[in-house]
């Protein structure tokens, strides 16, 4: 799923407002509109499952965090803006692209091609979970070439040039595994591809991967068939937080989850836990 794909279905909710009280109302309204608009797109058997995330503050952007270390020589000066809050200065991850919420169910074979956009120093999504046998297509939307490869070479994704407006396909080897992809031309680009046989394809056929839609405010939606699933967040190519058991009942267009999906331990929780 690309940013555009996600936005088509979820941006009203994602962009409804974040980090501000005034935007919460608009966000709720937009989420409602999203549900209404998305309903015709999903199969009748699918239920739009909506939930919220907990502990997103613990998810830090790995690239930015690494670049903030002076020992890595990524800048000659780096200073905080005095008028920005300290909380905002924490280099938290951009959830819509970096966090993948997956419903783990019975094993299945993936179908279709998962589209990944390369642009702006990263891919969209950054962490992607696919089924076995699924193909990924990397589309270069930058005005310059990229040279993607998988770190370690275990995925057989060798270094190759992708020209502007060109695309490159890759099918990970069979079996559950995690692959980290990088770009020789853009050091900030780090992508994680997770091959998970139990991942349930959760969204539109265009996306062909298992990641649900996540907003910046920490909300997510998944279109799931009837059945029992374990919801799990994937960040930096690895599952984070705790699994959230979910039972999707038939006959419902949408289902709100009462409990949040924990993707990390917030600092406040850490203090409470001693």
């Amino acid at each position: 799923m690309t940013n555009d794909d996600a936005g088509r279905r979820s941006r009203p909710a994602r962009d409804a407002g974040c980090f501000g009280k005034g935007r919460s109302v608009a966000g709720v309204g937009a989420l409602g509109a999203l549900v209404v608009l998305a309903a015709p797109l999903v199969a009748h058997a699918d239920t739009l499952v909506k939930g919220r995330l907990k502990g997103v503050e613990a998810l830090l952007n790995p690239v930015a965090t690494e670049a903030a270390d002076p020992n890595n020589h990524r800048f000659t000066f780096r200073e905080p803006s005095a008028t920005v809050s300290q909380q905002a200065k924490i280099l938290t991850a951009f959830l819509p692209k970096e966090l993948c919420v997956v419903a783990l169910g019975p094993e299945s074979k993936g179908q279709g091609t998962a589209r990944v956009v390369v642009s702006g120093g990263r891919t969209t999504p950054v962490t992607i979970v696919v089924n076995e046998g699924q193909t990924l297509q990397f589309e270069n939307h930058d005005p310059f070439v990229h040279r993607l490869y998988d770190v370690g070479g275990k995925g057989g994704f060798a270094v190759a040039e992708t020209a502007p407006k060109a695309a490159r396909s890759w099918t990970p080897p069979p079996g559950a595994a995690t692959y980290e992809l990088r770009d020789e031309r853009a050091p900030s680009l780090r992508t994680w591809v997770v091959v998970e046989p139990k991942a349930t394809r959760a969204v539109t056929p265009n996306a062909a991967h298992a990641c649900g839609v996540v907003t910046r405010r920490g909300e997510f939606t998944l279109s799931l068939p009837e059945g029992k699933f374990d919801l799990r967040g994937y960040f930096k190519g690895a599952p984070v937080g705790e699994a959230l058991p979910v039972e999707v009942k038939a006959g419902k267009d949408k289902q709100d989850l009462p409990d949040p999906l924990v993707v990390g331990k917030a600092e406040s929780d850490t203090k409470k836990g001693g």
Binding site: N61, V63, A68, F75, E79, P80, K89, I90, L91, G121
Partner: peptide
């Protein structure tokens, strides 16, 4: 938004 410079600026860093 993938560049560390942009991420920093969006989080209040110069």
């Amino acid at each position: 938004g993938g560049y560390a410079l942009v991420v920093d600026a969006l989080h209040g860093w110069v």
